[in-house]
Each structure stands twice: as structure tokens, then as C-alpha cells.
């Protein structure tokens, strides 16, 4: 994945009073989101390699688009796995609180359950209508790396990670794979290929197994509507389709304003905005 970025061209940061940033250093990608006067202004997303480096790459991407420098940003909140590596952040917040803040901003106060299905871990978060986190469940070690494994799997079958989700939906019938552990599932998927099962079906089988694994976590924690999904896997139609079918609950559709992978960064930026104004 190369640097991506986007900007709300109708705003002019040079005339603004409050400019803040949320930085989400995840296990797969690092995201920066800028709020100007509380509105989403610009964002960027780069691959996480060495966190400090990736953060600067993301900041530079924003600067390249908008001219905004680090010194123009009045408050920065960092979140995500590598949050402590964001040396210029005023403070850090957990990705749990940030996910809730971002989700409520985008989908509204009817949200009660958020599934953050990221690269390394999945979390199920419950909140009140005021955006207070009531409890959360973090995936156990045996469910590690489902998101990242999608990339590995896509690589193994020489497809793009952005296309395997759609391919997964093309088969109605497919064999069953171990749905407890990703290592077993990938290993069995390779065995299926060796047994000359068509690649389309293997991809479908793998997606189903992963969806089942995530659904176990969600079911353990419980789903209260409205239900939203954020993080990289929110963009995989294969996973989403079976997750909704297994759990018998549908999520609210993603909104175009902010990509599901940026919700936590948005939340962090919202906290930055609030902390700055309270100073």
C-alpha cells in the first residue's frame, strides 16, 4: 500500500483558529487525520514500518497536500499500537475510546456496539448514547492477526487483498476450514489447493472461517444495535457478508465522509479538539 491522502478543498486552514490532529499508529497502517474548526479537513494513510518513520511519512503526506506543517497543529492525540512512538503528541488515548468517539461522530448516537477489525487484533466495544465506553472485549491470542493474515493469504494466491473479498462471494459451496486458529486455516487452505479445489472456493472457505472466528468474539461480548464495523476488515465484503449472516445482525453501512480505517484517527482528533478547547 502506498501513501494515500485526501483533502477537503473547500476549507482553508490558514484562516482557522483551531487545528488539531489524531494519529493512529496501527500494526499495518499509520493514519493521520486533521480537524480544522472541528471539521474533517485532511487525512493520510501510510504503511507502518518503523512507527516513528511512518508517522513522519504520514505527516509529510498531509503537508504535501495542504501545506500544513507540524507547528501549525495545536494539539495532537496519538492512539494505536505505536502511540507511544508519536513523540510530538500531547497525549495518548486508547484506540477503544477513540473508536467510540469517531464512530458516534460518523454514524450518530444510535451506535451501541463497535467491532474494530484491524490488522492485528479485533475488539468489540460497547458504548452509551453519550459516547461513554461501558466495556470492551479484546481478541484472545488465538485470534491474532486475522486482518494481516488476509494479506498473507492474498499474497499466497497471488491476488490483491482488495479483490479477494469479492472473489469470496462468488461461491455458494465450499469446503469447511478450521475456524479456531488462523495458522490451521491457512495450512488447510493450502491443503485444499493441493487437492485441486478451485481457488475461488478456497478463498471463500478461508473468508468464511475467518468470519466465523470473529463472530465468536462478537457473540461472546454481545451485540446491541446499532452495530458498526471499523478497521481494515470493514472493507472486505466477504468477511462482512458472512459475519452478518452468522451473527444475524447487520451493520450500519459505511459513510463516504470517512473511511472505516480512519475512524479511530478521527476519534483521536476529536479528543485533541476537546482537550485543546478545555485548556
Amino acid at each position: 500500500m502506498s501513501e494515500l491522502g485526501s483533502m477537503n478543498k473547500q476549507m482553508d486552514w490558514k484562516k482557522a483558529n483551531v487545528i488539531v490532529a489524531g494519529v493512529d499508529v496501527g500494526s499495518v497502517t499509520t493514519k493521520v487525520l486533521i480537524l480544522v474548526e472541528g471539521q474533517v479537513y485532511a487525512w493520510s494513510q501510510v504503511r507502518t514500518i518503523a512507527p516513528k518513520e511512518s508517522v513522519f511519512n504520514a505527516i509529510n503526506e498531509v503537508r504535501y497536500q495542504t501545506g500544513l506543517e507540524l507547528q501549525n497543529i495545536q494539539y495532537v492525540v496519538a492512539t494505536g499500537r505505536g502511540s507511544t512512538q508519536v513523540t510530538f503528541a500531547q497525549r495518548t488515548m486508547s484506540e477503544i475510546s477513540c473508536a467510540v468517539a469517531g464512530a458516534l461522530r460518523i454514524w450518530g448516537s444510535s451506535v451501541r456496539t463497535i467491532l474494530d477489525a484491524g490488522g492485528d487484533s479485533c475488539k468489540v466495544i460497547h458504548c452509551t448514547d453519550k459516547g461513554r465506553v461501558t466495556d470492551f472485549l479484546w481478541s484472545d491470542k488465538c485470534a491474532t492477526g486475522i486482518g494481516r493474515s488476509m494479506e498473507t493469504f492474498a499474497d499466497l494466491v497471488k491476488k490483491e487483498v482488495t479483490e479477494i473479498g469479492d472473489i469470496a462471494l462468488q461461491s455458494d459451496q465450499f469446503p469447511k476450514l478450521s475456524d479456531f486458529c488462523v495458522v490451521y486455516a491457512q495450512s488447510e487452505a493450502l491443503d485444499l489447493i493441493r487437492s485441486k479445489v478451485p481457488l475461488k472456493q478456497v478463498i471463500a472457505a478461508y473468508h468464511y472461517a475467518m468470519a466465523k472466528r470473529i463472530s465468536t468474539l462478537v457473540a461472546r461480548s454481545g451485540v446491541k444495535k446499532d452495530f458498526v464495523i471499523i478497521g481494515g476488515l470493514a472493507k472486505n465484503p466477504g468477511i462482512i457478508n458472512w459475519l452478518e449472516s452468522i451473527l444475524k445482525v447487520s451493520r450500519l453501512a459505511p459513510k463516504p465522509e470517512v473511511d472505516p480505517t480512519l475512524i479511530a484517527a478521527l476519534g483521536a482528533a476529536l479528543f485533541a479538539d476537546a482537550f485543546y478547547r478545555r485548556q
Binding site: 500494526s27 518503523a50 499500537r81 491474532t144 492477526g145 488462523v182
Partner: peptide
């Protein structure tokens, strides 16, 4: 890194990276 399987090892290697441990 965690010894149990490559996924936990991958996860912890990333965790080490995020703690700022030298590459």
C-alpha cells in the same frame, strides 16, 4: 517473541516495533 506459533510471533514482533525496540 511469543514462541507458540508464527502469528503470535508476528504480533509480538510488531509489538516490539511499537515499543521502539531496535530493528
Amino acid at each position: 517473541v511469543a514462541i507458540q506459533c508464527r502469528l503470535s510471533a508476528e504480533s509480538e514482533a510488531i509489538d516490539l516495533m511499537c515499543q521502539g525496540v531496535e530493528i
